[in-house]
Amino acid sequence: MKHEELEESVPLYAAGALDRVERQALEAHLLSGCASCHSTLKDYQSIAALLPLALSPSKPPRSLKAKIMAERSPEPIPAQSVPSDPARSSLDPGDWMDHLFPPEAPVQSAALPWALGVGLLLIVAVGGYFVWDVWTQRSSDIAKIQQLEAALLEKSTKLAGVDREVGDQTKALADLRNELQQRAHEAAETKERLAQRETDLEETRTQLIQRSGGRTVETPQDEFATLLRIPNVNAISLIGSDIAKQATGFLLYDSRIQKVWLYSVNLPECPTGTTYQLWAIQDKPVSIGTFRVDTGETTHLLVKKVLNFTLAKTFGVSLEPSGGRSQPTEPMYLLSRS
């Protein structure tokens, strides 16, 4: 209990209204030497002692005095030899004054100072040990807290580093995404420009048709240029043989329309009575068509309608007598790469 609570219980103590536990708590507090509570209790005890004055007076039996005078011992017992009665309550009315106001005379028992000294020493020792134990525990706790704080700081630093890396990578990813979007945008623009060009080309072609009176004018070169933009057309490269090392060729084949284009460059001029013949060689050579290269002509485009020969592995061009042959009779001038 706090001092204030104990002091507030003093009036109840004086009136005899405290229970045993509270009474003993206050008595222990008073015996500890609280001057304030001593003074307060003395005042209230004096008031309490006056209460019987308000009672209607009752006269004791006349014989009582004689009995008392007869039964008392010859002399009052000296204070030093008054025995204490251990069976009585903790604070008898005759004793409370002794409890609360110890006599100033020398203590009655010679052993009491020793007992008090030993008790005090014991209290100091126990108190010192308690303080030391609390201090040690507190120091240990502080060291643990400092270690935890250091570990926390290290983890926080690492976390900050990871955060920075994540931030950098996120930024790089965003840059890549922006660049990708930029490229996609550029590709879209290119595709749009290409579509525009095709539209322009189609318009030009339409104008040419209209100018030519409705006839379709499509040169082999035009058709060849168109073929280059068709993804389904197969392209095969031909190189010149030993007898025509300067010659090269380029063969396109569209399986949808079963048409072949051979664009030859630097083939020798055909002698009189001869012609070049194009062969598709699968199991055996099959003639695709013939063409001539005249004087001063360095390039030639051959366009032929053919049957399906998608299984052909090799193509070749040989110089044959005019009109061609069913099988090659002369060496190949151009031959596709195997």
């Binding site: 003395k42 002692a49 005759g94 004054m97």
Partner: peptide
Amino acid sequence: WRKVSRYDIGRGTPDAWLVTLT
């Protein structure tokens, strides 16, 4: 009568002592 020697006027009035004891 037995304990009167323990009484000290400085600790309280005689009335208080007698009343409280009774």
